[in-house]
Design a protein around this nucleic acid. Structure first.
Length: 283
DNA sequence: ATGTGTTCCTGTCCGC
DNA sequence: TGCGGACAGGAACACA
């Protein structure tokens, strides 16, 4: 579901409810999400305090005072929904669907945070905090796209010699960590780069445009609270509105929004997934 | 090593 | 209204 801007929006929505809070009760409704939940998951979480809530790529990281970090990936349809619990009165978070609510976390602040994931591509794990970087989830991840080490020079090195098309290459989290299907199409359109170009064929000026486009589109999306497709909403229940700013994604047959361009947005399939682009202004 | 296709699971939408 | 098929924001995996 969510790409970097949506995960960051969720992090910001959960932060006031979780950071500094202690988990007083954890309810686990099934043994597995995408993968089996770790041994004694409930036991290892109950009573733990959350020191910080961070994000790395599309992962949420809740650093606990037990020496472990709760790692959560939302997959395609994972959502956190915030409600409250009071003695004698449970309030289900707005929009909750009990059928797919797999986990519930209650805090000493009266918060009730439900994890809901219909498609169950999401997963959670508990990893020793001092070994996070070496864990397979994180070991091979590329740079954060909004960080200084994602730049034209680094991207040039990462793409050197690659014959794979640039669209599919940018979805590879080892190249840059956090882009997904929507924002790759959006960034390539802004950079005026054709999605079928071989990744290694991009010229220095194009790499520079691409890096700037990626950063700009992600920053704008975060500012807008992410994109609301189907049922994504921020943890606080607010709907993101960046979807209204899509220039190409899900806009097949619409006129290209590039000023002066007379092109029409087309949809193609690359690596089994939809790509949207303008065949006129993306070269 | 690199690139391609399949798979996990459920829900929704579209055409007949 | 029902039914089949396509498709959906991710990413690991098997295979050529």
């Amino acid at each position: 579901m969510p790409e970097l801007p949506e995960v960051e929006t969720v992090r910001r929505g959960l932060q006031p409810h979780l950071e500094g809070a202690r988990l007083t009760r954890v309810i686990q409704n099934r043994p597995d999400l995408r993968f089996p939940l770790p041994e004694d998951f409930v036991h290892r979480l109950t009573g733990a305090a959350i020191k910080r809530l961070d994000r790395r790529a599309k992962y949420l990281l809740a650093e606990l005072d037990t020496g472990e970090t709760l790692v959560a990936h939302l997959g395609m349809t994972g959502r956190f929904l915030v409600g409250e619990h009071k003695p004698g009165a449970f309030h289900l978070p707005a929009g909750d669907d009990p059928k797919h609510t797999h986990l519930v976390f209650e805090t000493d602040r009266g918060g009730r945070i439900a994890f809901n994931d219909a498609r169950r591509f999401g997963y959670m794990d508990l990893i020793p905090t001092d070994r996070l970087g070496a864990h397979p989830y994180f070991k091979g991840l590329g740079p954060e796209p909004l960080g200084a080490d994602f730049n034209a020079a680094a991207l040039k090195t990462a793409l050197a010699g690659k014959k794979q098309n640039i669209k599919v290459t940018l979805l590879d989290q080892r190249i840059v960590a956090g882009l997904g299907n929507i924002y790759v199409s959006e960034a390539l359109h802004r950079a005026h780069i054709h999605p079928e170009r071989a990744a290694g064929s991009l010229k220095p000026a194009e790499l520079k445009r691409l890096v700037e486009a990626v950063k700009r589109v992600l920053e704008e999306a975060i500012t807008a609270g992410g994109s609301t497709l189907r049922d994504f909403r921020a943890a606080d229940g607010e709907l993101g509105y960046f979807q209204h700013s899509f220039r190409v994604y899900d806009r097949e047959d619409a006129p290209c929004p590039t000023p002066g361009c007379r092109g029409v947005i087309r949809r193609i399939v690359q690596g089994g997934r939809s790509t949207f682009f303008c065949p006129v202004c993306q070269k």
